[in-house]
Nucleic acid binder design. Structure first.
Length: 414
RNA sequence: GGAGAGGUGGCCGAGUGGUCUAAGGCGACCGCUUGCUAAGCGGUUAUACGGGUAAUACCGUAUCGUGGGUUCAAAUCCCACCCUCUCCGCCA
């Protein structure tokens, strides 16, 4: 949703905002737009007159003629233009501030209610009382929450020994699968400037959720989506180059402001986590097929790890600002007995592409590509589900077949 | 952090105050031609905003790294900043 959309379809815009439970003052935006257009029109007309006079001055000076009168008149027009520009700037500033708050539209299939669209696997049956990962991890000395608290505070974790290797194995496994699926791996900065954050849609809405640096105008990225959405910033992509498929492994950082008291134990909600992120640039007509492919790719990973999961199509009010349709994959973690969101797959359509000025050239003209992102997969939580579900009576953890090649053939932790 | 060089259309590259309405070239597209060679000729070649139209056409304004300033008039002059390259310093 952008200014043009709001102007052309005010009723539809109102409906979407309501569906998303999003409060933006549409009437004010529309009123400002009328004002803006009137100012632009007058400014352009005055400037046109001024330029014509300017040309006459030029001709007169060449001919050595007197032209003080023309100059005086031109100066008046110039002043008038400056005044109009000042007023216009104020109107545009207010309008842009409001327009930045506009979320994406939603896909017709996205309703006010969420819907479970897939379920797979059996929840594990234990012949004993299973441990939650915080107890299991400390018992095996692979997770250490005491040390992490001493190093950085609450909501961090220290991985040790085979526990650290398991984390790395998961990352390598995810990256390998993405490569097999035709993704190009990219390594990107984890510090982002405000333009990138704004372009990807993290600003202004996630402002308080990110870590800002004290001495530089940079933030630690909350997800590599921020970077991947800006990879072709201010570029024009040719239709023949699409789809572009990228995968990035990065750390992600979130302040988790406002979640005090929620998921405090263990590493279900921590400030720094690892994530392998898929990202695609597609032609607009291909994006929803791509969304289903990416969902299938992410689900395949969870299946290969033997983790029971369910996939939800999120409700309109629950999806991110930049997204038009989102699936969440939730993994079952049998120790603490809870569903954990381990992947979020979204079609952001052209929302980010407009904001990052990433254009698309086609035979019939120019437009914007569509952008999709999806975790495949997010760490700590996948890790949590894996170790909780695979714990054995003797206190060890069985390593799934798929991961053993990444752990030197290790079958068991503990 | 210091010194120097640079940033112009899809790309290369000219342009130091007034038909810049940005030369020229490359590439691309369209058309023509094809008894001379993988050739030639002609044309088109951005984006945004506003006006205009049934839709085109068309008209206006802006955009030469970014933001200010000077001027009737700025790619061009002044100031600040950003980025790239080279060298120095520091450093895993």
């Amino acid at each position: 949703m952008n200014l043009k959309f709001v102007r052309d379809n005010p009723d539809e815009a109102r409906r979407v905002l309501e569906l998303r439970r999003c409060k933006v003052d549409l009437d004010r935006i529309l009123a400002l737009d009328d004002e803006r257009r009137a100012l632009v029109k007058e400014r352009d007309e005055r400037r046109h007159e001024q330029k014509e006079l300017s040309l006459k001055v030029s001709v007169a000076k060449r001919a050595g003629e007197q032209c003080d009168e023309l100059v005086t008149k031109a100066r008046e027009l110039s002043d008038k233009v400056k005044e109009l520009e000042t007023r216009l700037a104020a109107v545009e500033a207010e309008q842009e501030a409001l327009a930045r708050m506009l979320p994406n539209t939603v896909h017709p299939s996205v309703t006010a209610e969420e819907e479970v669209v897939a379920e797979h696997g059996q929840k594990p049956e234990f012949g004993f009382k299973p441990l939650a990962h915080w107890d299991l991890g400390e018992a095996l000395d692979i997770l250490d929450f005491k040390t992490s608290a001493a190093l950085a505070g609450s909501r961090f974790v220290v991985f040790k020994g085979a526990g650290a290797a398991l984390q790395r194995a998961l990352i390598a496994f995810f990256l390998d699968r993405a490569r097999r699926n035709g993704y190009t791996e990219v390594g990107v900065p984890v510090l982002a400037n405000p333009e990138c954050l704004e372009g990807a849609g993290q600003l202004p809405h996630m402002e308080g959720e990110m870590y800002a640096l004290r001495d530089d105008p940079l933030c630690l990225i909350p997800t590599s989506e921020t970077m991947l959405a800006n990879l072709h910033r201010k570029q024009s992509l040719d239709e023949s180059e699409l789809p572009k498929k990228y995968v990035a492994y990065t750390l992600c950082f979130r302040r988790e402001a406002g979640s005090y008291g929620k998921d405090v134990r263990g590493m279900v909600r921590i400030h720094q986590f690892d994530k392998v992120e898929l990202f695609r640039y597609t032609r607009p007509e291909d994006s929803y097929a791509a969304l289903e492919e990416m969902r299938a790719e992410a689900e395949a990973l969870v299946r290969e790890l033997g983790i029971p999961y369910r996939t939800k199509r999120l409700a309109a009010w629950d999806i991110a600002y930049q997204s038009a349709k989102t699936y969440d994959i939730e993994a079952w973690a049998g120790g603490a007995g809870q569903w954990l969101e381990i992947s979020s797959i979204s079609n952001c359509e052209d929302y980010q592409m407009r904001r990052t000025a990433t254009r698309l050239r086609t035979a019939s003209g120019t437009g914007y590509p569509h952008a999709l992102n999806g975790s495949a997969l997010a760490l700590p939580r996948t890790y949590v589900a894996l170790i909780e579900n695979n714990q054995q009576q003797d206190g060890t953890i069985l390593v799934p077949e798929a991961l053993r090649p990444y752990l030197g053939g290790l079958e068991r932790i503990g």
